[in-house]
């Protein structure tokens, strides 16, 4: 899908489609480029400030490009009591970035998620849509190093 087809999909001046528009634009680019934020505003017929306000309100939206691999660390309660903070810190230490950041070589992005809803296999992380559950600091160290070697 291209940006153009996204804009074609939604009728003009329908402010209630704002979030769906942004979701689709992000689907295309992996993030929300500035030019698209301005264009979405014109398309939906709302001030750009409102689009920016919406884009910065919801966790899903990103204003900077994502890394090639997106690691989402679940920080739900079940994961927390089973040590997800250790998992996160291990990843942060290995990749040298903090949650919400992307490595300089644009290979990895770490994000935290409030709850993935896979509490039964806590602590859990998702790399590029693939679930890894029941992790320990050691296993996640191994896992991330496998990913790093792959590239």
């Amino acid at each position: 899908m291209s940006s153009e087809s996204v804009y074609k999909k939604y009728p003009k001046n329908e402010a209630s489609n704002l979030i769906a528009l942004l979701q689709d634009i992000q689907e295309v680019h992996g993030y929300l480029p500035e030019d698209d934020i301005i264009r979405v505003a014109k398309h939906a017929g709302v001030p750009t400030s409102r689009v920016f306000g919406v884009a910065t309100f919801y966790n899903q939206f990103r204003l900077t490009p994502l890394g090639k691999h997106v690691i989402r660390v679940c920080r739900g309660t079940a994961c927390h009591v089973k040590g997800s903070l250790d998992i996160l810190q291990t990843l942060e230490a290995e990749l040298g970035i903090k949650a919400g950041e992307t490595t300089r070589d644009l290979q990895f992005t770490i994000e935290t998620v409030a709850c993935i809803g896979a509490c039964s296999i806590a602590p859990v992380i998702v790399i590029d849509g693939k679930y890894y559950g029941g992790l320990t600091s050691k296993s996640v160290y191994k896992l991330i190093n496998e990913y790093m070697k792959k590239d």
Partner: peptide, 11 residues
């Protein structure tokens, strides 16, 4: 919009 961390019955 099941948002409670630790809940997944709706899902």
């Amino acid at each position: 919009d099941e948002g409670d961390p630790g809940a997944f019955m709706d899902r």
